[in-house]
Write a protein that binds this DNA or RNA. Structure first.
Length: 505
RNA sequence: GGCCCGUUCGUCUAACGGUUAGGACAUCAGAUUUUCAUUCUGGUAAUAGGGGUUCGAUUCCCCUACGGGCUACCA
C-alpha cells in the first residue's frame, strides 16, 4: 500500500471560504491519520481571475488553523512546482497524446462563435450531437487541421466524450456513482493560451504528485466522469485516486450554497481571515478577527457534515485526527448556523487557561492605550474569560478594570437612594480603609456585617455598589471585582459616585 | 430544460430492520447568581408524501414532491 497523499487545490481568486477550510481540514485529518502527506497546490491556470495576494492569504489561513501542508509553493517538496502556472509546459504533451489516440481533438471555434452558437441554440452543448457542425479537427479533416495548426490558428483541445459509455466510480462518501458519458459535453482540456483547464490539470497533477485520495466539494461531481475518463486514457484506472465528494455548506436561511454575500447580509464571517480585495479595496471579515479560536473553528467545521457516532461534540484537532473517518461524512449539505458556531467558540474559550487568553487580552488593552501589569491582567482574565463568547468580547467585559467608568447607570440607583444608604456607604468607606487584608471573602464579610448594623438588605446596597465599581449592572461577582480593583481604587470609585448622587439631589 | 446528488425536531445530527426516535444549538419555563453572563433542572419540537418488500421500515426498493449542484477557453 502506497503512502497516503492528499491535496487541497484552491485557485487564488479571493478569500478562503468556510467550505474551503473544511475541505482542507478533512484532507489534513485524513493525511495525519494515515501517516501520509498533505499537499497544497495552487490552481492558478486562469490568468484573468488571478488575484495578487490571494495565495499568501490562503497560506496564512492554513497557518492560523494549524493545518500546515507538508508540501506547497512555500514549503517546497519533491513533486513541485506546486503552482500550476509554473507547470504550464507539462500539460501539452498529455493533451497531444489524447489527440493522437483519438480521445481528444483540436477545436478552432472562436469564443465569439461559441457565444453566438449558444445564443442561437438554446441549451447548446459541444458534444457528440453537435461536434460535427463545428470547426474542429474531427470535421475539418487531417489536412485542413494541419494547415490551420501550422498557421498558428488559435485553438483549444477538447476531450471527445464517448457516445455510449457508462462511467462508474466509487465515491468514498456516496458509494457507486454512474454517469452516461455522452451527457457531458466535450470539455476544453487545453486552452488557447496553452494553459490546461482544471479538468486536465487535476488529473495530470494528481498523477504526477502521486495523490492517492482526492477530496473536493460536491459541485465537482458532475464533471467527475470527465476526470475518470482522463485517468483511464492517460494513466490507467488502477492509478486513479479514491474520490470523495464532500457535501456543500449551505446558507442558514433559505437554500443554496453559502456565499460571502450571505455573511454580509446576516452579519457573520464566511472567510477564515479578514480579506481585502486588492482591486475594489472591499474588506470582508474573517473568523479570526471576529474573535474565534482556531481550535473552535476547526472543531465546528469538522462537525458540519461529520460526527463520530457518539454524543461528543467538542474535539481537539488531535482527537479529530484519531477519530475522523470519511465513511461517516454525510451526503447531504449542512446549513451553517452562526449561533452554534459561537457556542463552540465559547466552549473553547472556557477550556482555555488564563495563559491562552494573555495574548488576546494584551493586544486588546494595547488597542485601547492601556498599560497594565501582567499580574493584574491575569487576575482580570481569570474573572472575565468565561464570560466571553468571542475573544473580542474581552475588552467590553473587562474595561472597567482598567479605566474608571465613563458613565454610571444612575437611574437604577438614584430613585431609591436615601440618607440611610448614604450613611452606610460613608461608614463602609471608613471600614474598608481600615481593612488589613483585601480579598473578596473578607470584603464580603465586612460588607454584610455593616449591612446588618444598618438594618439594610443586600438588595438595597449591593446593586449600588456594583454600579459604583462597574458603571452598569453587569459583570462578575461584586466582591471579586473590588478585590481585583484594590483598596484605593474601590474606595475612590465609591466616593466618586456618591458625589454624583449628592449633586443630583 | 437535461444530467447528477440529496431529504430525521427551526438548525447540526444519532439510531446492526425491532428505541417511549436520542443528543446539541436555538427557544420557552423554573432554580442559582439579589445584576448580567455562566451553571443546573424541566418543557415544546422531527422521520416530506404515496406505494411496495418484511412478522416488523427512519433504516431496503420504486414513484411523486421538494431542495441543491452542474450544464464556460472559471475553478
Amino acid at each position: 500500500m502506497s503512502t497516503v497523499r492528499v491535496r487541497f487545490a484552491p485557485s487564488p481568486t479571493g478569500g478562503l471560504h468556510l467550505g474551503g477550510v473544511r475541505t482542507v481540514l478533512y484532507n489534513y485529518l485524513f493525511a495525519r491519520q494515515h501517516g501520509g502527506q498533505f499537499i497544497l497546490r495552487i490552481e492558478d491556470t486562469d490568468q484573468t481571475r488571478f488575484v495578487p495576494g490571494a495565495e499568501q492569504y490562503i497560506q496564512d489561513c492554513l497557518a492560523w488553523c494549524g493545518l500546515i501542508p507538508d508540501e506547497s509553493p512555500a514549503h517546497g517538496g519533491n513533486y513541485g512546482p506546486y503552482r500550476q502556472s509554473e507547470r504550464k509546459a507539462i500539460y501539452l504533451p498529455y493533451a497531444q497524446q489524447l489527440v493522437a489516440a483519438g480521445q481528444a481533438y483540436y477545436a478552432f471555434d472562436t469564443p465569439e462563435e461559441l457565444e453566438a452558437k449558444r445564443k442561437a441554440v438554446p441549451n447548446f452543448q459541444y458534444s457528440h450531437a453537435t461536434r460535427m457542425e463545428m470547426n474542429n479537427s474531427l470535421r475539418l479533416g487531417e489536412a485542413v487541421t494541419k494547415e490551420l495548426l501550422e498557421k498558428n490558428t488559435p485553438h483549444v483541445i477538447r476531450i471527445k466524450m464517448p457516445e455510449n459509455e457508462t462511467v462508474t466510480f466509487t465515491d468514498m462518501i456516496r458509494g457507486e456513482v454512474s454517469f452516461n458519458a455522452s451527457q457531458s459535453d466535450d470539455k476544453v482540456l487545453l486552452k488557447a493560451d496553452q494553459m490546461p483547464t482544471y479538468h486536465l490539470a487535476v488529473v495530470v497533477d494528481d498523477f504526477l504528485m502521486k495523490i492517492t485520495h482526492a477530496f473536493r466539494g460536491e459541485e465537482w461531481l458532475p464533471s467527475a466522469p470527465v476526470h475518470v475518463l482522463l485517468w483511464k486514457y492517460l494513466f490507467g484506472l488502477d492509478k486513479m485516486p479514491q474520490w470523495a465528494h464532500l457535501p456543500l455548506i449551505l446558507k442558514p436561511d433559505g437554500n443554496g450554497k453559502l456565499s460571502k454575500r450571505d455573511g454580509d447580509r446576516l452579519g457573520f464571517p464566511v472567510f477564515a481571515m479578514n480579506w481585502t480585495d486588492p482591486k475594489t479595496g472591499e474588506q470582508t471579515k474573517g473568523f479570526k478577527e471576529m474573535g474565534f479560536l482556531p481550535a473552535a473553528f476547526t472543531n465546528l467545521l469538522a462537525m458540519l457534515g461529520w460526527n463520530d457516532g457518539t454524543e461528543q461534540e467538542l474535539f481537539s484537532l488531535e482527537e479529530l485526527v484519531q477519530k475522523f473517518s470519511m465513511e461517516r461524512v454525510h451526503k447531504g449539505g449542512a446549513k451553517f448556523d452562526f449561533e452554534k458556531a459561537k457556542w463552540y467558540n465559547h466552549e473553547w474559550i472556557k477550556r482555555l487557561g488564563v495563559e491562552g487568553m494573555r495574548q488576546v487580552a494584551a493586544s486588546q488593552l494595547q488597542e485601547h492605550g492601556i498599560a497594565a501589569e501582567a499580574d493584574y491582567t491575569n487576575k482580570v482574565i481569570a474573572l472575565v474569560k468565561d464570560r466571553c463568547t468571542l475573544l473580542t468580547d474581552f475588552w467590553q467585559e473587562s474595561k472597567f478594570f482598567f479605566e474608571t467608568p465613563a458613565q454610571y447607570d444612575l437611574p437604577s440607583v438614584q430613585p431609591k437612594w436615601n440618607d440611610k444608604k448614604q450613611q452606610f456607604f460613608v461608614e463602609i468607606i471608613r471600614q474598608f480603609e481600615l481593612m488589613q487584608f483585601w480579598n473578596a471573602t473578607d470584603l464580603e464579610k465586612e460588607f454584610k456585617e455593616m449591612m446588618a448594623v444598618h438594618e439594610l438588605k443586600p438588595g438595597d446596597v449591593l446593586l449600588p455598589l456594583r454600579v459604583m465599581l462597574v458603571g452598569g449592572k453587569s459583570g462578575p461577582a461584586v466582591f471579586d471585582i473590588a478585590a481585583v480593583l484594590g483598596k484605593e481604587e474601590t474606595i475612590a470609585r465609591i466616593k466618586a459616585m456618591m458625589k454624583l448622587l449628592q449633586l443630583q439631589k
